[in-house]
Amino acid sequence: MDIETLTAYNQQAAAYARDWREQDAPSDMYALLKQYFSPGLTVDIGCGAGRDTAWLLDNGFQAIGVDVSQGLLDEARAAYPGITFQQASLPALDGLERGSYQNVLCETVIMHLDPASISDAVSTLIALLVPGGTLYLSWRVTEQASQRDKSGRLYSAFERELVTVPANGPCDVVFEEDVISASSGKRTQRLIFRKKAA
């Protein structure tokens, strides 16, 4: 994770958590998860304050949340004390067992990585899946050059191929769209991958 981005999330965790709670729910994403995810162990990578992890549990998925920011994890644990949250960082995601998850959710996280780390991050996300498992991956689209917002969070500009090339071997793309997010109002690229059966 980009250090300035992590610092922003840690220092302003309560404010970000409040903003996410007050946003409209990402109903368009939730509809896709209902359509493409299957029952089973599910991990929300970059869970932030835990809103989407809680939704997964409420909708029948055996879900845990993972984030690199201790501040956001503290917010998530306070809001959802019955849910398991743990700390890990892309691209390595140390501590998460490969080949163990039916579903992986990674919503608007990878744009906070240096572009040089994105392919490795996607490979790790795919490695978490069981054969036949599903990865939902999205990112905020930044045109031309990478930039930072007023809090210092990195929004990397990168080609779609950085995401799809690592997935070409073990996965098929089963859904793709470039859309304005119903929750954030920002341009978002969404891809859903299905890991090939062994």
Results as ranks from 00 to 15, higher is better:
Ala145Trp: 10
Ala145Tyr: 01
Ala145Gln: 15
Ser146Met: 09
Ser146Glu: 11
Ser146Cys: 11
Ser146Gly: 15
Gln147Met: 09
Gln147His: 09
Arg148Ile: 03
Arg148Trp: 01
Arg148Leu: 02
Asp149His: 04
Asp149Leu: 06
Asp149Tyr: 03
Lys150Val: 12
Lys150Ser: 14
Lys150Thr: 12
Ser151Cys: 01
Ser151Asn: 09
Gly152Ser: 06
Gly152Val: 03
Gly152Cys: 03
Arg153Ile: 06
Leu154Arg: 06
Tyr155Met: 04
Tyr155Thr: 04
Ser156Gln: 05
Ser156Pro: 05
Ala157Tyr: 11
Ala157Cys: 08
Phe158Cys: 09
Phe158Glu: 08
Phe158Leu: 10
Arg160Glu: 15
Arg160Met: 10
Arg160Ile: 07
Arg160Ala: 00
Arg160Tyr: 02
Arg160Asn: 09
Arg160Cys: 02
Glu161Leu: 11
Leu162Gln: 06
Leu162Trp: 04
Leu162Ile: 06
Leu162Thr: 07
Val163Ser: 05
Val163Met: 02
Thr164Met: 02
Thr164Asn: 04
Thr164Tyr: 01
Thr164Lys: 03
Thr164Leu: 03
Thr164Ile: 13
Val165Cys: 05
Ala167Lys: 07
Ala167Met: 03
Asn168Tyr: 00
Asn168Val: 12
Asn168Glu: 15
Asn168Pro: 00
Gly169Glu: 13
Gly169Asn: 05
Gly169Trp: 11
Gly169His: 13
Pro170Ala: 07
Cys171Thr: 06
Cys171Met: 03
Cys171Val: 09
Cys171Gly: 01
Cys171Leu: 01
Val173Thr: 15
Val173Gln: 13
Val173Cys: 14
Val173Ala: 11
Val173Arg: 12
Val174Arg: 07
Val174Glu: 11
Phe175Trp: 06
Phe175Ser: 10
Glu176Val: 09
Glu176His: 03
Glu176Met: 05
Glu176Gln: 15
Glu176Asp: 13
Glu177Trp: 00
Glu177Val: 00
Glu177Phe: 02
Glu177Asp: 15
Glu177Ser: 12
Asp178Lys: 11
Val179Ser: 12
Ile180Gly: 01
Ile180Glu: 12
Ser181Ile: 05
Ser181Met: 03
Ala182Pro: 11
